[in-house]
Every structure is written in C-alpha cells, then in structure tokens.
Design a protein around this nucleic acid. Structure first.
Lengths: 125, 125
DNA sequence: GCGACATATAAGTAATAATTGATATGTTTA
DNA sequence: TAAACATATCAATTATTACTTATATGTCGC
C-alpha cells in the first residue's frame, strides 16, 4: 500500500452494545463533547495523546519523544488529565502517564480519515 | 430504555474498506485532526452542526432552531464551512446549509459516549 | 429605482489558551 | 542535610476565539 496514496481510512468504533441506535443528543451532551473535542483540538496535545497511547510513559520520556519543552508537555498533560483521557501513576520521582480511554484513538483516526477524505473531495472538481 | 440511565452508547463508525487496520498517524494528520476537532469544540457550533445534519436549512431557520443571534450563527457557519463540514447552496435570498459529511455525527456521538462513560467511571469508586 | 427581507461583515470586548523562561516542589541517594 | 534529578507551577506574552451591537451587502418584488 502506498504511503497516504488514496482514501484508505477505516476505523471500527462499534464499542458497545445496541449498535446502530442513533443516540439523541441532549444539550448536556453538547457541553461534554465540546469539552472533549477541545482536548483534541491542538496538534501538540494529540501527539502527546498518541504517545501515551502506545504505553505508560514518564514525562521526560514524552518530552523526548514529542520534542516539546518540559513545561509545555506538563501543561498539556494537565489538560489531558482534566478531560479524563489520561491517568497517572506515581513511581518514585517518575510520574507515569497512560491513556485512560483507548477508544479515543479510534475517534482520532476517524477524524483523520474524514479530514483526509474531505480534503481529497475538495480537490476533485 | 431510561433517559440517560446507564451506559448505552454505541456507534458504528466502520465507514470504509479494510476495517481494523490501525492507520499510522503522521504529523500532517495531527494538524488536520486538531483543525477538525476545533470545529467540534464549541457547544453552540455542535448544536448548529446537528441542526443542519437533520436537513438542509436556511440561516434564519437555524437561528430560530438553536436560539442564537443571527450574527453568531453566521459566524459559526462560516467556521463550519471553513472546516468543510458544511456546504451551502443558494436559492434566492436564502442560503441553505447542509452537513457535508454525515459521518461526523457518528464521531460526535462516539465522543458523547466516551465522555459519558468516563464521567460515570469517575464517580464509581 | 425603492422597500423589505436574508445574510454577511465590521468593530470592539472579554475570555481563553499556547508558549516560553525562570523557579519552585517533590523524590531519591549519598 | 545536600546534591541531583523529575515534574509542576508562575509570570508574562501572544494569539485565538466567542460574542455583541451596529452596519453593510445582496436578493427579490414592486
């Protein structure tokens, strides 16, 4: 398969019982979704999210992997904890961070796929 | 089924061929996802998005349905067009807006489900 | 053209958020 | 306790964004 050649996105997010039923979205839901989406609305935060999604990591490990400053990574991690997407576990001087909700990665991939397709369609005229 | 009683979220986002393959997320993707997520990061914008997701609607119809000021709705619609999620179609003095990518609603529902479950788990201790 | 209506834009404000550099807190080992 | 290291927080800056009020643009029928 070529590197990002065509539209090859596929994500299975069927992650619960009674699939297919379109949930009615209440006003309360919009607040939650907006809050969660805000966590995904920064590229650096997404890098960190995917990084911790690959395994439990200390802050310094994340700093090294994503190439951002330590205070910035710390700030974004705080945000990710606030949205409950990341949970921590202390071990000596290290604080290990791990993804609390794996399905968020499927959602990120789904968003990526939709974005890619929309851009592709944009240029098809 | 009760109104928001338990965890009953289920969304099928398997929307393409070769399901299951976890797409590698490149740096370029993070930008796109962040950009798209930003569109979903405001409750009012989500209301508008869902509103136009239910059918082609004029701006005034949207204004009435979501109960926001006309300039504010116009502003959010501009944002939604910028992210390619909404497309327009002129008809006389009316400008009809419609959802360009229906799958985004599945993603919104998926986010809602994840949010709901995380909050539920938060209070289970 | 003019009036009525639909929608967009402009200007201004206030709030939020990303980023950086410096510093503080907390933990371990000696 | 002190030195070394991991992480968090602070202060300041800059950028972005939501929202409001007022006004402009565009379209139609007359």
């Amino acid at each position: 398969m070529e590197k990002k050649a065509g539209v090859k996105v596929s994500v299975n997010l069927d992650f619960a019982e009674n699939a297919g039923e379109a949930e009615k979205l209440l006003d309360e839901d919009f607040q939650r979704v907006a809050f969660l989406a805000k966590s995904l609305s920064d590229a650096n935060r997404l890098r960190i999210l995917v990084c911790v999604g690959k395994g439990k990591k200390s802050v310094s490990a994340i700093v090294e992997e994503v190439g951002l400053s330590q205070p910035l990574v710390s700030h974004h991690l705080k945000e990710l904890k606030r949205s409950l997407l990341v949970r921590i576990e202390r071990n000596g001087p290290f604080i290990y961070h791990e993804l609390a909700e794996a399905r968020i990665l499927d959602i990120v991939r789904a968003l990526s796929g939709v974005a890619e397709e929309m851009l592709a369609a944009r240029k098809t005229f």
